[in-house]
Design a protein around this nucleic acid. Sequence first.
DNA 1: GTCAAACGTTTATTATATTGAACAAATTGA
DNA 2: TCAATTTGTTCAATATAATAAACGTTTGAC
Lengths: 181, 181
Amino acid sequence: MDIGARLKMVREAQGISQRELAKRAGVTNASISLIEQNRVSPSVSSLKKVLDGLPMSMADFFTFELEQQPPRQVFAAAEQPDLGGNGVAMWLVGAGVENRQIGLLREVYAPGADTGTEMLKHEGQECGVVTQGCIELTIDTQVHILHPGDGYYFSSNQPHRFRNIGETEAILISANNPPTL
Amino acid sequence: MDIGARLKMVREAQGISQRELAKRAGVTNASISLIEQNRVSPSVSSLKKVLDGLPMSMADFFTFELEQQPPRQVFAAAEQPDLGGNGVAMWLVGAGVENRQIGLLREVYAPGADTGTEMLKHEGQECGVVTQGCIELTIDTQVHILHPGDGYYFSSNQPHRFRNIGETEAILISANNPPTL
DNA sequence: GTCAAACGTTTATTATATTGAACAAATTGA
DNA sequence: TCAATTTGTTCAATATAATAAACGTTTGAC
């Protein structure tokens, strides 16, 4: 969606006029008009002033989407594709959902299964809960042992590794944002 | 953080020069230099061109934060605060983590527990997996029955309701973004 | 009806961003 | 060591955005 339409939508959602917004933002009403018509591409600084008048952050402004109904909403265990390997079976909840903001995975670790000595490292944040069995989680140089109900939350750019150190299957529900799968 | 620093950080993270980025983006290296020094406030259109060269979306650009080490990274089941009520016990994974992008909850429903006939409705997206017991999930007018391993994903602005319709405790791991708790 | 106020739009002027070319400093290879 | 690149920066010229003021239309009051 273009900037003009976005701005117009937000402004009208608040029920204020171009002039009123212009006054709050400290710009002229003409600017608002031209921006909403996409006749100009505002500078970041002036767009920021305008958004301050709403008020709304840049991040929110560029992030928000017209909420559309996802076609599918529930996903049976059986029908979800297995994305794993190396003794780790992984199911992505809501695979194929449009504009997905969350990557939620159900991961089943066979006894001894391991994400590998080559530590994982990527952008974003991730968190999870162990629901069954026993998982060893290494974050950077720190080693943690997680039992059912125990959780974690860390920045994914820290080297990390998961390993089932129990003698039974371990299940981990993990979430990441932005979604990596 | 200012635009210049953000851009510089992203560019350097990719290990490319101002000129290289300029070439990819279809702008001059002078522009990149001036932007990174905050000597100019780029127009949205030119910033977009620059980000296309990285590539990175506006939303990501304004959303990302200097990743800082969260002080805590693992959270034992026992020590997490219970945020629930009405027969539903809820633990937030990573409560207190700064700049948290994901709300991950471990929810335990007593037999018959119910989020209520007054349907829930809020912004964002949510998804989850049932790990134990049997949960009835109503989304708008649709009623679904979820067993262990079954998941869901929907837009939280749709009216919804969770209910344990089994005779045993049910456990649900849910994630939402942006975090509501 | 008529006036006054508020609305979004348009225009000429001013302020600012972007370009193209040149600069000095740092790095690379012979 | 020296020349050739490559780096980020700067400057005058140009293109574009922002302003201030005016325009025509719509709305509500009297």
